[in-house]
Nucleic acid binder design. Structure first.
Lengths: 130, 130
DNA sequence: TGCTTAATGCAATTTTGTTGCAAATGTAAT
DNA sequence: ATTACATTTGCAACAAAATTGCATTAAGCA
């Protein structure tokens, strides 16, 4: 099996996601890493982090992809696998995307649908902007 | 105020969305209209249809944008404005995205968040694929 | 300290989305 | 029907975003 390596680029990006405390858009990450590593590397690191379950991905209605390391991940290391069925909030004013860890929507799929992943994105105005 | 025109490109795209009975990805629409109209026109027609409330847009976790004319729209013409807070299902096997009109998730945003739009996308296996 | 293989950088390419403008065309009024 | 006019379209050019191949670098284990 493939081994997982701890490289500077990876550390840097993970750190950035930690520090942000919110979901970062791909372009924000690109910006943060400019001078640190190549644009292509960012794509590849993020893909790896996804596969390793270190971050999750969410997409806002305008099609912008965001990556986040949720607080739940942070506190719980790696042993406890958990889903990311929580709501993400996209502020139309400041553009920030935040994980609302505690907001888990309830719904019932029709019989015979098998659920794997969810992407719940709601947009509007965040507390700071209204 | 701007008048709304009924052009061949527009009719064709609306028809395609009707016939599909599911959400079509942008590239599917591009493909369907190849030979009919220009790539740029597709972008513009879809934007107009969005503004006119004829279709809605949803984004799957892989970042692919889909457009759909929901059954609710279809039956109810234009008078009844309704939101699209329903769930969309993205099948990981066949790739189809369908509107689950009747599945409206329940959730409560923390106080002070103001909700405008939603994009609820769940992925897994559809009845046909499992 | 080496060895193996994952990870990176760079360049090239592809895909996707946008803009400006002249020509075409839908629609309402005549 | 014909006209008038604003909307819509196509085309070309451009800009932005994502992907791929390959040679080089370096992480981590023995």
């Amino acid at each position: 099996m493939a081994q997982i390596r701890n490289t500077p680029s990876k550390r840097f990006i993970q750190q950035a996601l930690n520090d942000a405390g919110r979901a970062l858009s791909l372009s924000e990450i690109q910006e943060a890493t400019s001078g640190i590593c190549d644009r292509v590397t960012v794509y590849r690191v993020l893909e790896r982090l996804l596969n390793e379950g270190e971050v999750h991905r969410t997409v806002s209605l305008d099609g912008v992809v965001h990556y986040a390391k949720c607080s739940a991940c942070e506190t719980n290391g790696h042993t406890h696998v958990h889903d990311h069925h929580h709501v993400h909030f996209h502020c139309e004013s400041c553009g920030d995307v935040t994980c609302l860890e505690s907001v888990i929507p309830e719904f019932k799929l029709p019989r015979k649908y098998e659920l794997h992943e969810t992407n719940f994105m709601v947009s509007g105005l965040c507390p700071g902007c209204r």
